[in-house]
Protein backbone atom coordinates (compact mmCIF):
# COMPACT_ATOMS: atom_id res chain seq x y z
CA UNK A 1 0.00 0.00 0.00
CA UNK A 2 2.79 2.42 0.90
CA UNK A 3 4.75 1.97 -2.31
CA UNK A 4 1.94 2.74 -4.76
CA UNK A 5 0.85 5.63 -2.55
CA UNK A 6 4.24 7.35 -2.57
CA UNK A 7 4.83 6.45 -6.23
CA UNK A 8 1.39 7.86 -7.05
CA UNK A 9 2.09 11.14 -5.26
CA UNK A 10 5.42 11.59 -7.11
CA UNK A 11 3.95 10.52 -10.43
CA UNK A 12 0.86 12.64 -9.85
CA UNK A 13 2.84 15.75 -8.98
CA UNK A 14 4.57 15.38 -12.32
CA UNK A 15 1.18 15.22 -14.01
CA UNK A 16 0.22 18.40 -12.19
CA UNK A 17 3.10 20.03 -14.04
CA UNK A 18 1.88 18.46 -17.27
CA UNK A 19 -1.61 19.89 -16.76
CA UNK A 20 -1.01 23.27 -15.20
CA UNK A 21 -0.18 25.03 -18.48
CA UNK A 22 -3.33 23.71 -20.05
CA UNK A 23 -5.29 24.95 -17.04
CA UNK A 24 -4.02 28.48 -17.58
CA UNK A 25 -4.75 28.52 -21.30
CA UNK A 26 -8.21 26.99 -21.00
CA UNK A 27 -9.10 29.04 -17.96
CA UNK A 28 -8.11 32.39 -19.44
CA UNK A 29 -9.06 32.01 -23.07
CA UNK A 30 -11.61 29.18 -23.11
CA UNK A 31 -9.41 27.70 -25.79
CA UNK A 32 -9.05 23.95 -26.05
CA UNK A 33 -5.37 23.56 -26.83
CA UNK A 34 -5.25 20.10 -28.36
CA UNK A 35 -1.60 20.72 -29.21
CA UNK A 36 -0.68 20.96 -25.51
CA UNK A 37 0.94 17.51 -25.51
CA UNK A 38 2.91 18.39 -28.62
CA UNK A 39 4.55 21.30 -26.82
CA UNK A 40 5.42 18.83 -24.10
CA UNK A 41 7.01 16.63 -26.76
CA UNK A 42 8.94 19.64 -28.08
CA UNK A 43 10.21 20.27 -24.55
CA UNK A 44 11.52 16.70 -24.52
CA UNK A 45 13.40 17.45 -27.73
CA UNK A 46 14.88 20.57 -26.09
CA UNK A 47 16.21 18.37 -23.27
CA UNK A 48 17.51 15.90 -25.81
CA UNK A 49 19.28 18.70 -27.65
CA UNK A 50 20.79 20.14 -24.47
CA UNK A 51 22.30 16.75 -23.61
CA UNK A 52 23.30 15.51 -27.05
CA UNK A 53 24.53 18.80 -28.52
CA UNK A 54 25.85 20.70 -25.51
CA UNK A 55 26.53 17.75 -23.17
CA UNK A 56 24.81 19.66 -20.36
CA UNK A 57 22.65 18.50 -17.48
CA UNK A 58 19.01 18.23 -18.73
CA UNK A 59 18.04 20.53 -15.85
CA UNK A 60 19.53 23.37 -17.92
CA UNK A 61 16.78 22.64 -20.42
CA UNK A 62 14.15 23.70 -17.86
CA UNK A 63 14.74 27.49 -18.04
CA UNK A 64 15.70 27.25 -21.70
CA UNK A 65 12.51 25.41 -22.67
CA UNK A 66 10.40 27.81 -20.61
CA UNK A 67 11.87 30.95 -22.21
CA UNK A 68 11.80 29.55 -25.75
CA UNK A 69 8.19 28.41 -25.52
CA UNK A 70 7.08 31.52 -23.67
CA UNK A 71 8.22 33.47 -26.73
CA UNK A 72 6.69 30.88 -29.07
CA UNK A 73 3.44 31.22 -27.15
CA UNK A 74 3.41 35.01 -27.43
CA UNK A 75 4.00 34.80 -31.18
CA UNK A 76 1.44 32.03 -31.69
CA UNK A 77 -1.10 33.97 -29.69
CA UNK A 78 -0.71 37.02 -31.91
CA UNK A 79 -0.98 34.87 -35.01
CA UNK A 80 -3.91 32.68 -34.05
CA UNK A 81 -5.97 33.64 -31.06
CA UNK A 82 -7.39 37.11 -31.85
CA UNK A 83 -8.70 35.77 -35.18
CA UNK A 84 -10.07 32.74 -33.43
CA UNK A 85 -11.93 34.80 -30.86
CA UNK A 86 -13.59 36.87 -33.54
CA UNK A 87 -15.30 33.70 -34.76
CA UNK A 88 -18.88 32.86 -33.77
CA UNK A 89 -17.90 29.75 -31.85
CA UNK A 90 -14.26 30.15 -30.80
CA UNK A 91 -14.27 27.14 -28.47
CA UNK A 92 -15.33 24.72 -31.17
CA UNK A 93 -13.07 26.35 -33.73
CA UNK A 94 -10.13 26.17 -31.33
CA UNK A 95 -10.52 22.39 -31.18
CA UNK A 96 -10.16 22.15 -34.94
CA UNK A 97 -7.40 24.73 -35.16
CA UNK A 98 -5.24 23.25 -32.42
CA UNK A 99 -5.88 19.72 -33.65
CA UNK A 100 -4.46 20.90 -36.97
CA UNK A 101 -1.52 22.54 -35.22
CA UNK A 102 -0.90 19.30 -33.32
CA UNK A 103 -0.81 17.34 -36.56
CA UNK A 104 1.55 19.84 -38.18
CA UNK A 105 3.96 19.79 -35.23
CA UNK A 106 3.98 15.98 -35.15
CA UNK A 107 4.48 15.71 -38.91
CA UNK A 108 7.30 18.25 -38.99
CA UNK A 109 9.10 16.56 -36.10
CA UNK A 110 8.63 13.13 -37.70
CA UNK A 111 10.11 14.37 -40.97
CA UNK A 112 12.98 16.00 -39.12
CA UNK A 113 13.81 13.37 -36.53
CA UNK A 114 12.18 10.10 -37.62
CA UNK A 115 9.82 7.87 -35.71
CA UNK A 116 12.19 6.04 -33.39
CA UNK A 117 12.10 6.26 -29.61
CA UNK A 118 14.58 8.58 -27.96
CA UNK A 119 15.53 8.89 -24.33
CA UNK A 120 18.17 10.25 -22.00
CA UNK A 121 20.15 8.37 -19.38
CA UNK A 122 18.63 8.90 -15.93
CA UNK A 123 22.06 9.58 -14.42
CA UNK A 124 22.29 12.75 -16.57
CA UNK A 125 19.42 14.46 -14.74
CA UNK A 126 20.74 16.59 -11.92
CA UNK A 127 24.38 15.61 -12.37
CA UNK A 128 25.47 19.27 -12.18
CA UNK A 129 23.71 19.62 -8.80
CA UNK A 130 25.24 16.36 -7.62
CA UNK A 131 28.71 17.56 -8.67
CA UNK A 132 28.13 20.85 -6.82
CA UNK A 133 27.04 18.95 -3.71
CA UNK A 134 30.17 16.82 -3.86
CA UNK A 135 32.35 19.92 -4.26
CA UNK A 136 30.72 21.68 -1.32
CA UNK A 137 30.09 18.83 1.07
CA UNK A 138 32.23 15.98 -0.21
CA UNK A 139 30.99 12.42 -0.79
CA UNK A 140 30.43 10.81 -4.18
CA UNK A 141 28.08 11.34 -7.09
CA UNK A 142 25.31 8.78 -6.66
CA UNK A 143 22.94 8.32 -9.59
CA UNK A 144 20.97 5.49 -8.00
CA UNK A 145 17.42 5.44 -6.71
CA UNK A 146 16.21 7.65 -3.86
CA UNK A 147 14.87 6.20 -0.61
CA UNK A 148 11.57 7.54 0.73
CA UNK A 149 10.20 5.89 3.89
CA UNK A 150 12.35 2.86 3.20
CA UNK A 151 11.15 2.46 -0.40
CA UNK A 152 13.27 2.94 -3.56
CA UNK A 153 12.07 5.28 -6.27
CA UNK A 154 13.71 6.55 -9.46
CA UNK A 155 15.62 9.76 -8.71
CA UNK A 156 14.14 11.55 -11.77
CA UNK A 157 10.66 11.09 -10.30
CA UNK A 158 11.66 13.07 -7.24
CA UNK A 159 13.32 15.74 -9.41
CA UNK A 160 10.16 16.02 -11.53
CA UNK A 161 7.93 16.22 -8.45
CA UNK A 162 10.06 18.97 -6.85
CA UNK A 163 10.14 20.93 -10.11
CA UNK A 164 6.40 20.55 -10.33
CA UNK A 165 5.90 21.87 -6.78
CA UNK A 166 8.12 24.87 -7.55
CA UNK A 167 6.23 25.54 -10.79
CA UNK A 168 2.85 25.31 -9.03
CA UNK A 169 4.05 27.68 -6.29
CA UNK A 170 5.31 30.16 -8.88
CA UNK A 171 2.04 30.02 -10.83
CA UNK A 172 0.18 30.52 -7.56
CA UNK A 173 2.34 33.55 -6.75
CA UNK A 174 1.85 34.85 -10.26
CA UNK A 175 -1.92 34.56 -10.05
CA UNK A 176 -2.39 35.76 -6.48
CA UNK A 177 0.56 38.05 -5.79
CA UNK A 178 1.23 39.90 -9.04
CA UNK A 179 -0.77 42.58 -10.81
CA UNK A 180 -0.77 40.68 -14.10
CA UNK A 181 -1.94 37.62 -12.22
CA UNK A 182 -4.83 39.52 -10.64
CA UNK A 183 -5.86 40.68 -14.10
CA UNK A 184 -5.51 37.10 -15.34
CA UNK A 185 -7.93 35.90 -12.66
CA UNK A 186 -10.33 38.68 -13.61
CA UNK A 187 -10.27 37.50 -17.22
CA UNK A 188 -10.71 33.89 -16.07
CA UNK A 189 -13.73 34.88 -14.03
CA UNK A 190 -15.57 37.00 -16.64
CA UNK A 191 -13.83 37.85 -19.85
CA UNK A 192 -16.54 40.27 -21.05
CA UNK A 193 -16.60 42.14 -17.75
CA UNK A 194 -12.82 42.34 -17.69
CA UNK A 195 -12.91 43.82 -21.18
CA UNK A 196 -15.58 46.33 -20.12
CA UNK A 197 -13.49 47.48 -17.17
CA UNK A 198 -10.61 48.36 -19.45
CA UNK A 199 -8.34 45.40 -18.82
CA UNK A 200 -6.04 44.72 -21.75
CA UNK A 201 -7.45 41.23 -22.22
CA UNK A 202 -5.18 40.40 -25.13
CA UNK A 203 -2.06 41.25 -23.16
CA UNK A 204 -3.21 39.16 -20.22
CA UNK A 205 -4.23 36.28 -22.48
CA UNK A 206 -0.99 36.37 -24.46
CA UNK A 207 0.99 36.15 -21.22
CA UNK A 208 -1.13 33.23 -20.01
CA UNK A 209 -0.76 31.47 -23.36
CA UNK A 210 3.02 31.93 -23.35
CA UNK A 211 3.35 30.78 -19.73
CA UNK A 212 1.08 27.80 -20.50
CA UNK A 213 3.25 26.63 -23.37
CA UNK A 214 6.39 27.28 -21.33
CA UNK A 215 5.12 25.08 -18.52
CA UNK A 216 4.17 22.35 -21.00
CA UNK A 217 7.71 22.46 -22.38
CA UNK A 218 9.18 22.22 -18.85
CA UNK A 219 7.15 19.10 -18.19
CA UNK A 220 8.44 17.75 -21.50
CA UNK A 221 12.02 18.04 -20.23
CA UNK A 222 11.20 15.31 -17.70
CA UNK A 223 9.21 13.15 -20.13
CA UNK A 224 12.16 10.95 -21.23
CA UNK A 225 12.71 10.05 -17.59
CA UNK A 226 9.07 9.56 -16.63
CA UNK A 227 7.95 7.57 -19.68
CA UNK A 228 11.12 5.76 -20.67
CA UNK A 229 11.28 7.34 -24.10
CA UNK A 230 9.50 9.77 -26.39
CA UNK A 231 8.67 10.08 -30.09
CA UNK A 232 7.11 12.86 -32.18
CA UNK A 233 3.76 11.07 -31.76
CA UNK A 234 3.98 11.22 -28.01
CA UNK A 235 1.83 14.32 -27.55
CA UNK A 236 -1.68 12.94 -28.01
CA UNK A 237 -1.73 10.77 -24.89
CA UNK A 238 -0.20 13.60 -22.84
CA UNK A 239 -2.96 15.96 -23.98
CA UNK A 240 -5.71 13.54 -22.91
CA UNK A 241 -4.16 13.01 -19.48
CA UNK A 242 -3.65 16.76 -19.06
CA UNK A 243 -7.34 17.35 -19.64
CA UNK A 244 -8.25 14.77 -17.04
CA UNK A 245 -5.94 16.34 -14.47
CA UNK A 246 -7.26 19.84 -15.18
CA UNK A 247 -10.92 18.84 -15.10
CA UNK A 248 -10.38 16.79 -11.91
CA UNK A 249 -8.92 19.76 -10.06
CA UNK A 250 -10.69 22.83 -11.28
CA UNK A 251 -10.13 25.51 -13.85
CA UNK A 252 -8.09 28.52 -12.91
CA UNK A 253 -6.81 27.14 -9.66
CA UNK A 254 -3.22 25.85 -9.64
CA UNK A 255 -3.86 24.03 -6.37
CA UNK A 256 -6.73 22.26 -8.08
CA UNK A 257 -4.39 21.06 -10.80
CA UNK A 258 -1.93 19.84 -8.18
CA UNK A 259 -4.72 17.94 -6.45
CA UNK A 260 -6.03 16.58 -9.77
CA UNK A 261 -2.55 15.37 -10.68
CA UNK A 262 -2.00 13.64 -7.36
CA UNK A 263 -5.42 11.94 -7.47
CA UNK A 264 -4.71 10.76 -11.00
CA UNK A 265 -1.23 9.53 -10.05
CA UNK A 266 -2.28 7.67 -6.91
CA UNK A 267 -5.31 6.13 -8.66
CA UNK A 268 -3.12 5.04 -11.57
CA UNK A 269 -0.60 3.33 -9.31
CA UNK A 270 -3.29 1.50 -7.34
CA UNK A 271 -5.03 0.37 -10.54
CA UNK A 272 -1.65 -0.86 -11.84
CA UNK A 273 -1.21 -2.81 -8.63
CA UNK A 274 -4.62 -4.43 -8.41
CA UNK A 275 -6.16 -4.27 -11.91
CA UNK A 276 -3.16 -3.70 -14.13
CA UNK A 277 -4.90 -4.61 -17.41
CA UNK A 278 -7.42 -1.81 -16.89
CA UNK A 279 -4.95 0.98 -16.14
CA UNK A 280 -5.48 2.67 -19.50
CA UNK A 281 -9.16 3.20 -18.81
CA UNK A 282 -8.47 5.21 -15.70
CA UNK A 283 -8.29 8.71 -17.27
CA UNK A 284 -11.62 8.24 -18.99
CA UNK A 285 -13.30 6.75 -15.93
CA UNK A 286 -12.08 9.65 -13.79
CA UNK A 287 -13.21 12.16 -16.41
CA UNK A 288 -16.71 10.71 -16.61
CA UNK A 289 -16.97 10.42 -12.83
CA UNK A 290 -15.95 14.00 -12.13
CA UNK A 291 -18.19 15.40 -14.86
CA UNK A 292 -21.16 13.50 -13.44
CA UNK A 293 -20.49 14.11 -9.76
CA UNK A 294 -18.82 17.50 -9.62
CA UNK A 295 -18.56 19.22 -13.00
CA UNK A 296 -16.79 22.24 -11.53
CA UNK A 297 -13.88 20.07 -10.41
CA UNK A 298 -12.83 19.17 -6.88
CA UNK A 299 -11.80 22.71 -5.93
CA UNK A 300 -14.19 24.52 -8.27
CA UNK A 301 -16.72 26.97 -6.93
CA UNK A 302 -19.26 26.83 -9.71
CA UNK A 303 -20.14 25.05 -12.92
CA UNK A 304 -17.97 26.10 -15.80
CA UNK A 305 -19.42 28.37 -18.43
CA UNK A 306 -17.31 26.71 -21.09
Amino acid sequence: MLYPLIAGILFGLYFSLVGIGLNLVFGVMRIVNLAHGDFLMLGAFVAFGVVSLAALDPLFAVPLAFVVFLVVGLVLYRLLVPRLQRAKDPEMLSIILFFGLSQVIEAVMTIGFGTSERSLPSRELGRSLAALRVRLFGGTVDSGPVEILGQSFPAPWLAAAITSLIAIALVYLYLYRSRLGTLTRAVMSRRDEALATGIDVHRVSAAAFGIGLGLAAISGVFAPFMFGSFTPAFGVDATVTSFVVVVLGSLGNPLGTALGGVIYGVSYMFVQTYLSSWADLLPYVLLIAILLLRPSGLLGRRVRVA
Binding site: Y3, A7, F153, F227, Q272, A279
Partner: peptide, 14 residues
Protein backbone atom coordinates in the same frame (compact mmCIF):
# COMPACT_ATOMS: atom_id res chain seq x y z
CA UNK B 1 -1.07 -8.15 -18.22
CA UNK B 2 -0.70 -4.42 -18.71
CA UNK B 3 -2.02 -2.22 -21.53
CA UNK B 4 0.35 -1.98 -24.49
CA UNK B 5 0.48 1.79 -23.99
CA UNK B 6 2.04 1.42 -20.53
CA UNK B 7 5.09 3.63 -20.04
CA UNK B 8 5.58 3.44 -16.29
CA UNK B 9 6.50 0.17 -14.62
CA UNK B 10 7.91 1.29 -11.29
CA UNK B 11 5.03 0.03 -9.14
CA UNK B 12 4.71 -3.15 -11.19
CA UNK B 13 8.43 -3.85 -10.75
CA UNK B 14 8.01 -3.41 -7.01
Amino acid sequence: GVPTETTSYTVIIN
